[in-house]
Every structure is written in C-alpha cells, then in structure tokens.
Design a protein around this nucleic acid. Structure first.
Lengths: 198, 198
DNA sequence: CCATAAAGATACAATTATAGTAACATATTG
DNA sequence: CAATATGTTACTATAATTGTATCTTTATGG
C-alpha cells in the first residue's frame, strides 16, 4: 500500500500544479488541456507524454490532495501534543483542505460517471474515517472524550459534515464554504469535548 | 442622457442576472448560452428573443454594473455628509464594485477584440473620473483637500489604481484583489486628507 | 371562452473548439 | 556524441456550441 516515491519529471509536476490551480478555480469541465499546458508552460505533446488525458490529471491531482491530507492528518495525530491542541490543528487542517478541494472540483468529481474519480474520493474518505475512528477510540480510552459518547456517532456527524458543506441551505447562511466548515468542525469537535464547563 | 426606464420582461431580467452571476465567476468565455438559460430557467429560444448573442448580454451586464456604479457614486457625493464620511463610503463602494467586476470578467472585456465592450468600459471610467475631478475640485475649494495638491495628480493616482489591481506583482502580495483595492483606495484617499497629523 | 402573444420543447445545420496524434526539429545532459 | 525529454506545427476526428425553424404549450386580457 505504500506509495513508492518515484522521481517525477519537472513537466509532470508543472502540469499537476497548473491543473490543480485551474481545476480549483473553474472545475474540471471548464478547463481545457491547452489551458493547462499554457499555465504549466509546456507543449501539448509533453502533456500527452505525461498523462493519457485530462481525467487522469484530475485523478492525480485528487490523489495528490488526498495523500497530503493523510500525511497532514497523521502528522497531527501522531504528534506528542495535548488532545486539545490536536483537535485544534485538525480543524485548521480541515479548513485548509477546503481551499484545495473547491466546490467546483468536487462537483465535477461527484458528477463524473465513467471515471473512477468518485470511488477514489469515497474510498479515501472511508480510510480517513477509519483512521479517525481508531484515533478517537484511543483518545476516549485516555479520557479525552466523554466515555458515554459513541464514537460511531461522532463519525456519523463528521460524515454528514461533507454533505452539509454542499447543502445550499447552509452555505447560503455563511459567506463561504470555508466559514461553514469552520463552524461545523468547531461544533462537532468542541461540542464533544469533556472539558466543557457545562 | 437620462436612460428611460423601459419595462423589461421577467425573462430579460432573469437572463441578465444569471449571466451576471456566471460571468462573475467564470468570465465570459467559459460560460455558454445554454448555461445561462439553465440558470435563468428559460429556454434557449427565449434567450435569443431577448438578446442577439452572448456578447450583447455581456454588454448589458456591464452597462447594468456601470449604471449602478454611477448611481451609487452620485448618491454618495450629493448627500449632505461630511467629506470624511463621503470618502469612507466611496472606499466602501469601490470595494463592493470589485465584487461585481471580477478579474475574469474584466479580463474578458479587455481581451475582447471585435466588440465595443472595451470602449464602453473605458468611456465609463472616463466619465467617472471627470465626475470625480469636479467633486474633488469642489471639495478642495471648501478646504477639504490640501490646497497645494493638484487634483489631476489625484486623478492620475486613481487611474493608476485600476492598472495596479491587475498587476500580479501587487495582487500576489494580498489575499485577494478586494483586499488590495481597499489598501490602495485607503492610501490614495486617506493619504491625501489635510487633517492628517503629520 | 376565445384570440393573441409570449415562452417552451425539440430537432437541426453550420460553425467552432477541443482532443489527441504524427512527424520532424530542437534542447538538454551526462 | 548518444540518448532522452521537450517543442513546433500541422492535421483529423469528434464533440460542443451556436443560432434558427417549427411546432406545442402556457398566459393573459378583452
């Protein structure tokens, strides 16, 4: 399961970064291969020597974002920090992730019919949830979460967060999806802490 | 010069609003007629019965934004308010305008070769600058602006503001174009006031 | 209730944009 | 120099988009 760190060519990285930036802004559908090439400052041929097509780039961009997400998550949870601090950093990370996974990008991925993008994303989310489950269980055993709280309930709340972020009834109440994300994660995490003076 | 308030059909307004929202987000080029129709919840035929083509819609959207700009400007300058307050509201207005004239939209207008969009925008900017010149001259006579300051210099600074807003060297220093606009207008207006303790 | 106008649905031809490839030229690098 | 990566150009096939014609449905007002 460990991804081998192959050395990627300069062009490869440039394409990925350019595509990432453009997909983030316009979504996958609205971006053309030539736009990516222009932004990456490479020729179209170089593009097709590195990737089969646009969707493959999208997949790799997604993978890149996800791998970074996993890495960031593990770095936070495995650090020798008080639970409070971990949660705080997790909220921060969640917020940053939302800047990498824009609404347009997600919409295109969820709307994709033929590609396996949707599955890739969903499996990643499952993996993350599993890791979160384990970590939260451990934290609960250490008394950092109320003992009477079902971890599955917390997981459920976090899962539903993803849907809520796309719910227009909610997003319209906030200036941006990011704001809403902060609000929701704050609620879920801090509303769950046992050290609340309540 | 007074624009007659013709009664516009519901569809006409819907198209204009839908187009405005889409152009703002993606620029003119990336938006298709059918997307506008979908968002406006009208059929393609209704679109073509109201407008010749996409560029005409863009022109009207631009006109709409500009007319609102003029109205807002006049309302502020003609109000019975202390000069301080007027400047403050002007800065605020400038900021709001930037939310209506997104970078993508402006880029498409400036990049337009065949249409008269560019001229329309530039003439509007000229008109606004003229009005500003008059108003600032009046303010200067009333002692609200340093007497030794050339109004043309102020105008020049404000003109250069528009270019600076598109200057990547500057925008990259700020989180958003809006932030930069606030910074620049603040500098220009408040750095010019005579009541500075300097 | 009917006549008329306005808007929608659909299918369509013409045009334009985009994707992807081939063949050859040019850098880059050890 | 050899080998590899990249660039340029031109091209085809396909898909998307535009704009229109025709017919149907829905509003609306006398």
């Amino acid at each position: 399961m460990g991804a081998s760190k192959e050395k990627r060519s300069k062009s490869y990285v440039a394409i990925l970064n350019a595509a990432h930036a453009l997909f983030w802004k316009y979504g996958i559908g609205k971006v053309t291969v030539e736009e990516i090439c222009k932004k990456a400052e490479i020729s179209k041929m170089t593009f097709y020597r590195n990737f089969e097509n646009k969707n493959h780039v999208a997949r790799n961009v997604l993978v890149q974002i996800m791998e970074k997400g996993v890495l960031d998550y593990r770095r936070i949870m495995d650090a020798d920090l008080p639970f409070n601090e971990k949660i705080h950093r997790l909220v921060q990370m969640e917020h940053d992730n939302n800047e990498n996974l824009s609404e347009e990008f997600l919409r295109d991925i969820y709307g994709a019919t033929e590609t396996g993008l949707k599955n890739t994303l969903e499996e990643w989310q499952k993996t993350m949830m599993q890791a979160l489950h384990d970590d939260l269980s451990k934290a609960q055993k250490k008394g950092e979460i109320r003992k009477d709280l079902k971890i599955d309930f917390v997981i459920y709340m976090i899962n539903s967060l993803n849907e809520k972020l796309l719910d227009k009834r909610l997003t319209s109440m906030y200036g941006s999806t990011q704001e809403l994300a902060v609000e929701l994660t704050n609620f879920i995490f801090y509303g769950v802490m046992p050290n609340d003076k309540k």
